[in-house]
Design a protein around this nucleic acid. Structure first.
Length: 657
DNA sequence: GTTGGGAGAATTTTT
DNA sequence: TTCTCCCAAC
């Protein structure tokens, strides 16, 4: 039996060992939220609940993995059989089993953002609108997603979003409906559908609902402030019988309202579950008092929230956060370099340092700098590994051999061939009757027979490799190799100047697929694997200390001794879009709060005065309101370097290897 | 039907 | 600088 009293403070202990029934843990940043939740899981299991009777819902896969690992380190084997993951993962898992109830096959396809966009492009085109005058695909998709995730009527929502639009809302709805139909035709679900259909499964199929209600005796939810209506309905359904639902969150850290998150979920929890136990964690173990002072001061400017104050437990060492008033991004880079060097001299290693920013593109200069100065770094990049064109090509190839009805993969692979475009792919697919069974010689031969001679010549060796793969004469790696030799290498060479890198990636990907064991399972769920997960895997294997570059969103839940925040200037943080589109800046401020509270020992904030634009132009910047609204006495100001050097905008635009 | 050139636009955050 | 779309030439 684990001695929790020696591991947790009074508040945490109360939360971890709270009896059955609804429980709300309001945990401010750095108060040991994860720790508490992990020990609650441990406690439940030691109390006699079986691991498979627990459902642990998190916001990212990384968070789930981290928690399970920490529980495992307390008692090895303790979490085996426990369901832990994101809402999307859990929904997917249920749907893989019960999809036929809703008219989907078990191996339904999950559409990623690219798939959604290409489907939407077709819908706009089919409806006869010119892509130029019609709203962009992303915009249309975000209207649909926004309505779905907020539980709002589509027409109402589209109308509010389309007030000054040149295209009528009816036309938008028409296209959106076409998109939904198309999705249904190919038996695919997008990300939102996973939530929608999992909820429908529970609501409309009593036996399924009862099955999961009986199975999961305890439901725990992390980051509850970032759940949306679908997600809260989902957990409420699961817990409606026993009401053993524990949620953890902090309304200050709600940073996903743009995706439908609604922190009312956490605020209204006590009303929804009368008699719910509410426990506040306010003792901050993470940050120096000077850092917390800035965080507290900042969040005060958001009046409409549960007021909580972070109480420091750590000693003050006069570690006021530093603000650097630098002239340019070049000087920002130079200073970062110095900060990193001096941190290392102070005994920190690279892994103790994180560089955070509002948007991915803010990090470009810093990446170049770190590369030039040979500082090892990892980046949670904008484009995930699996989102790159070449990765998708290979995934589609393998998918084509496994999923006979997967039109999207069929099209993608076939249109790689020279002289074969979308129109031909569609024709071939129709001639095949909308199915391509790779294991059947008839299907393979028919496809070849229907092709033009030039396409046939290119496809023949690939078709043969597929045949051998299906006859188990080739492994996945060998299939991909054959594809590369027969066609793909020359294709890459022709299309891209970094063909070699891409080829390496593709080979690595093939090995990865093979390593996973079940090819079909991996392919089905690949859309749910994010770049962060891939990065996590890499770090695990490579394990070299490195500086982390990350957006603030992706840094949520993590902490570092040294945190550097880039581009704290108006228009970048808060972002331009939020200034123009949103009536208030409270979400951006919460984001700033999240960034600040990641820091344990040192916090460095940059407010460059100028920014060079991609076309060589220059823009003046003013410090972010989030910095200016903090009393100066809480910060340590660093003036720009004395001798203002003159930089040509072009001198550092050149590629730095 | 396909491809490639040329013009034009564009830069939030993610499952 | 890079992606996307449109149109004209194969």
């Amino acid at each position: 039996m684990t001695d929790l009293a020696s591991l947790l403070n009074a508040e945490q202990l109360e939360a971890a060992t709270a009896p059955d029934g609804p429980l709300l843990i309001l945990a401010a940043a750095g108060t040991g939220k994860t720790r508490t939740l992990v020990y609650r899981v441990v406690h439940l299991i030691e109390r006699g609940i079986a691991p498979w009777e627990i459902l642990l819902l998190t916001f990212t896969n990384r968070a789930a993995r981290e928690m399970l690992e920490r529980a495992e380190s307390v008692t090895p084997g303790i979490t085996s059989g426990l369901w832990g993951g994101t809402f999307h993962h859990v929904a997917n898992r249920m749907l893989r089993r019960y999809a036929p109830r809703l008219g989907f096959p078990n191996d339904f396809r999950i559409l990623d953002a690219d798939d959604q966009k290409s489907l939407m492009r077709q819908c706009i085109k089919d409806a006869g609108y010119a892509a130029k005058t019609f709203p962009k695909r992303e915009v249309v998709l975000s209207m649909l997603s926004g309505a779905v995730n907020r539980g709002l009527d589509l027409l109402d929502y589209v109308e509010t979003k389309n007030e000054d639009g040149e295209v009528s809302s009816d036309n938008l709805i028409e296209v959106i409906n076409a998109y939904t139909r198309k999705k249904d035709e190919i038996k695919a679900m997008d990300f939102d559908d996973l939530l929608v259909f999992a909820l429908r499964l529970l609501e409309e199929h009593d036996d399924v609902r009862e099955h999961y209600q009986n199975r999961f005796k305890h439901v725990l939810v992390d980051e509850y402030q970032d759940t949306n209506v679908l997600q809260s309905a989902f957990v409420n359904r699961l817990a409606e019988g026993h009401q053993n639902i524990s949620v953890v969150g902090d309304d200050f850290q709600c940073i996903y309202t743009w995706r439908g998150s609604n922190y009312r979920n956490i605020m209204d929890f006590p009303t929804q579950y009368p008699g719910a136990r509410v426990i506040k964690l306010e003792q901050n173990y993470r940050s120096r008092p000077e850092i917390l002072a800035v965080a507290n001061e900042s969040i005060k400017h958001n009046p409409d929230q549960f007021q909580k104050v972070l109480r420091p437990t750590r000693d003050s060492v006069n570690a006021r956060p530093r603000v650097y008033d630098v002239y340019s991004d070049r000087e920002q880079s130079d200073t970062i370099s110095k900060i990193i060097r001096s941190a290392c001299e102070d005994g920190y290693n690279y892994s103790d340092i994180a560089i955070l920013y509002r948007s991915h593109f803010h990090s470009i200069e810093t990446q170049i700098l770190l590369g030039r100065t040979h500082v090892p770094y990892a980046i949670t990049s904008g484009v995930g590994f699996f989102d790159q064109a070449h990765a998708k090509d290979i995934i589609s190839l393998v998918r084509l051999t496994e999923f006979p009805a997967d039109w999207l993969s069929f099209e993608r692979v076939l249109t790689l061939l020279r002289g074969l475009g979308p129109a031909s792919a569609e024709k071939l697919w129709a001639k095949l009757g909308g199915v391509y069974k790779a294991e059947e010689a008839d299907h393979r031969n028919n496809l070849l027979a229907f092709m033009t001679p030039s396409a046939r010549a290119q496809w023949e060796p690939i078709s043969e490799a597929i045949a051998n793969y299906k006859a188990s004469k080739l492994s996945v790696t060998e299939l991909v190799s054959a594809f590369i030799t027969a066609y793909y290498e020359s294709y890459l060479n022709k299309e891209y100047d970094n063909a070699k890198d891409r080829l390496d990636d593709v080979r690595e990907l093939a090995t990865e697929i093979e390593r996973r064991g079940s090819v079909t399972e991996f392919l089905s769920d690949i859309a749910l694997l994010t770049n962060v997960d891939v990065e996590g895997e890499k770090q695990r294997t490579e394990n070299e200390p490195h500086v982390l570059l990350s957006t603030i969103h992706q840094a949520k839940g993590l902490e570092w001794p040294v945190v550097i925040i880039l581009w704290a200037v108006e228009g970048m943080f808060p972002s331009n879009r939020s200034i123009v589109e949103e009536s208030d800046d409270s979400e951006e401020r919460r984001l700033f709060y999240v960034a600040v509270t990641r820091a344990k020992e040192q916090l460095h904030i940059f407010t460059p005065r100028t920014r060079y634009l991609h076309d060589g132009g220059m823009m003046d910047c003013t410090p972010s309101r989030f910095v200016k609204e903090i009393p100066e006495t809480l910060l340590e100001q660093h003036a720009p370097s004395q001798q203002r050097r003159r930089y040509s905008p072009y001198s550092f635009r050149q590629k730095n290897y």
